[in-house]
Write a protein that binds this DNA or RNA. Structure first.
Length: 325
DNA sequence: TGGCGAATAT
DNA sequence: GATATTCGCC
C-alpha cells in the first residue's frame, strides 16, 4: 500500500482506451432532436463496438438522418448543412432547441465508472454536480444528469455504509448492478476517517500546454479541494497539485460553456452555422500516451445514440466508452 | 443568481 | 426502477 499513488494512477491510465479503439466512434451526445434543431448531421457511430454487452436495443435502424460516414469525411459531407432553413423560421417556429426534450440518458457501467472516478478525484465532500460534470467532460452530459445520478449514488453509498458497519448481509443483486460495477473507493464509505495521508487526487500530468481558463475553473476547484483536505495540506501539497489544471482538455477545447440552464454546449448558432471544431473535437482520438501527455481525467468516451421508437417513441441516449475494463 | 440537494414526477 | 424535473434554500 505504498506505491499506491503511482500505481493506481498507472493502472488508471492503462484503462484508457487506445487511439485505435477510439477511432471509429465519433460524435457525442447530441440528441436527434437537438441535432435536428441545429441541422447537425451527426457522423454517427459506425458501431465499432461489437463487443458491448449493451442493451437489448432492438434493431431499430437509425433514422435516415443519421447515416454514418467515415470520420474522415464526417465533416466534409455530414456537416451541418447550412441549408436547413428553419432554425429560426418555418416549421420550427420558436426556439425548438430550448424546448426540445432530451433523450433519457442511460448510465452505462462505463459512464458510471467515469463518474466515480471524477467523484473520487474531487473527494466526496467537494463532489458536486457541476464539478463532476466538468471533470467527466463527456459532452452533452448535463449538470442535471449528474445531479440526478449523484443523488442516487449517495443513497447507494449510504446503504453501503449501513451494511458495512451494521448488518452483514450484503449484495443486492439486481438493484445495484450498476453501482456495483464500479468499485467504491474506500474513503467514500468513511468520510470521517481519511486515508492516512496519501493518494487520491493524484497530481495529474504536470504538462503545461496552454490550457484554457475554463479548465482553470475545474482546476481551481480541485486545488481548493486539495487545500480543504487536511491530509493533503502537509508538506506534500505543493506546486504539484496545482498542475492539475489541464483537466479536461484532450485535444482541443473540450468544455462547453454551460449555458444558462446548464444545457449542453450548443454549437453557436450565431450566424446560422457553428464552429466545426465542435464536431471535430473528440472526433480526433486523444492520444493515449504513456508519456507525459494529457488526456482528460477519465478516459475518453463516445456516444451511441439510439432511438427506441418501439418504446413508444422514447429516445434513449447511451453513452458508452470505447472499451470497458 | 446559480447551483445544490431533496422531493416529486414521468 | 431509473432518470428527469421541480422546488425551496443558501
Amino acid at each position: 500500500m505504498r506505491e499506491d499513488d503511482s500505481d493506481w494512477f498507472a493502472r488508471w491510465e492503462e484503462e484508457l482506451p487506445s487511439p485505435e479503439e477510439l477511432m471509429p466512434l465519433s460524435q457525442s451526445l447530441i440528441s436527434p432532436d437537438l441535432a435536428l434543431a441545429f441541422d447537425i448531421r451527426s457522423p454517427v457511430h459506425g458501431n465499432g463496438n461489437s463487443g458491448q454487452p449493451h442493451h437489448h436495443h432492438q434493431s431499430t435502424p437509425p433514422t435516415p438522418s443519421q447515416l454514418q460516414l467515415p470520420s474522415s469525411q464526417a465533416n466534409s459531407s455530414a456537416e451541418f448543412a447550412a441549408d436547413s432553413a428553419d432554425l429560426g423560421s418555418g416549421a420550427a417556429g420558436d426556439e425548438p432547441a430550448r424546448t426540445l426534450k432530451r433523450p433519457r440518458l442511460v448510465w452505462t457501467p462505463q459512464l458510471h465508472k467515469r463518474f466515480v472516478d471524477a467523484v473520487a478525484h474531487l473527494g466526496i465532500k467537494n463532489a458536486v454536480p457541476k464539478t463532476i460534470m466538468q471533470l467527466m467532460s463527456v459532452d452533452g452530459l448535463t449538470r442535471e444528469n449528474v445531479a440526478s445520478h449523484l443523488q442516487k449514488y449517495r443513497l447507494y453509498l449510504k446503504r453501503m455504509q449501513g451494511l458495512s458497519s451494521g448488518g452483514g448481509a450484503g449484495s443486492d443483486p439486481a438493484t445495484d448492478r450498476l453501482f456495483a460495477s464500479s468499485p467504491v473507493p474506500a474513503h467514500f464509505l468513511h468520510p470521517n476517517r481519511v486515508p492516512s495521508s496519501d493518494h487520491f487526487m493524484p497530481s495529474f500530468v504536470p504538462i503545461a500546454t496552454l490550457q484554457q481558463q475554463q479548465q482553470m475553473a475545474a482546476a481551481a476547484a480541485a486545488a481548493a479541494a486539495a487545500a480543504a483536505n487536511p491530509h493533503l495540506q502537509p508538506p506534500q501539497f505543493h506546486h504539484r497539485q496545482i498542475a492539475a489544471a489541464h483537466f479536461g482538455s484532450p485535444t482541443n477545447g473540450q468544455f462547453n460553456s454551460p449555458t444558462s440552464n446548464g444545457q449542453f454546449n450548443s454549437p453557436t448558432t450565431t450566424n446560422g452555422k457553428f464552429d466545426p471544431s465542435f464536431l471535430a473535437r473528440q472526433t480526433q482520438p486523444l492520444h493515449r500516451m504513456s508519456t507525459p501527455s494529457l488526456h482528460s481525467p477519465v478516459g475518453n468516451y463516445s456516444e451511441d445514440l439510439e432511438s427506441a421508437n418501439a418504446n413508444g417513441g422514447r429516445t434513449v441516449l447511451t453513452l458508452f466508452p470505447t472499451r470497458d475494463d
